[in-house]
Design a protein around this nucleic acid. Structure first.
Lengths: 146, 146
DNA sequence: TATTGTTATACTCTATAACTATA
DNA sequence: TATAGTTATAGAGTATAACAATA
């Protein structure tokens, strides 16, 4: 036993979300490992590559993590040579984080691998349900206005 | 800033799942607090009430947590008077866990509150998308056959 | 005074290894 | 030998408080 979902919990949102997330993390970990980064680190690289340069605080806000968490995250990315810190000339309290060329390569390769993980993960849903699922998550992941 | 989803991450499954789950946990916590239990504890109560009596190991398998985690979980539920451990007469290595009357009351009341949290959480999706979402989660939360 | 980055610290959740009692 | 429960321990991940530099 242990396979399948216990009937009593099959419609409890907390149980379903927790286990769906765990399954994705477990599927992603071995695929990401060869690139030397994990999902959170890839998210930082993705964010930095996307738009204008960000300070640590700004990146932390976007990812909805604590700024102390971002310090540790940038520490490890910098130790791997994937990002660099630069004091902002406009506001010398801020560290602007920038991708290195190695960081750009890593983002490209690991990003491609991660896209495949996502595709494989969603495959059992079929196309239509996958799109519904993503749309629902985008709504639910958005913090309430207040 | 900080509201809305960063465009670069709005379609990354890991980011969406993590934040969707966090939003549910944050919504549930204050509602569950008055009942003195959290979501995982409620899941145990739900499981125990659902079918035949379970040993700690069996409950751990169903919830997909480690048996050492289940020890701690049952410890706190027992300290709150919501469950009782009984040595199984058939196999004296096993602890059968059973709901106390207080546990049954707690399950009923906290379960009702939790159902409302789930409903409120899903409300922004509308009925059809909610059903799609649940169905997708049920597929994705199920461990792969092998 | 307030903000950014940092450090030290602590708390939660979880997993691993070793022990015990039973089978 | 193997299994169920337990304990001790350690590792993530995250958050809080306090400090230095800067605004």
């Amino acid at each position: 036993m242990g396979d399948g979902l216990p009937d009593a919990l099959a419609s409890r949102l907390g149980y379903l979300l927790k286990h769906a997330q765990r399954r994705l993390v477990e599927a992603a970990a071995p695929v990401m490992a060869p690139f030397g980064i994990d999902g959170r680190e890839l998210a930082v690289l993705t964010l930095l590559a996307a738009g204008s340069p960000l300070s640590q605080q700004e990146a932390a806000d976007e990812l909805d993590v604590d700024r102390t968490t971002m310090v540790a995250l940038v520490d490890t990315l910098e130790a791997k040579g994937l990002v660099e810190r630069h004091r902002s000339p406009q506001d010398r309290r801020k560290n602007i984080i920038e991708l290195t060329p190695a960081g750009q390569n890593c983002l490209r390769d690991a990003g491609k691998a991660r896209d495949e993980v996502d595709r494989d993960y969603l495959a059992p849903l079929g196309d239509a349900l996958s799109r519904h699922f993503i749309r629902a998550l985008q709504i639910l992941a958005t913090p309430p206005p207040e």
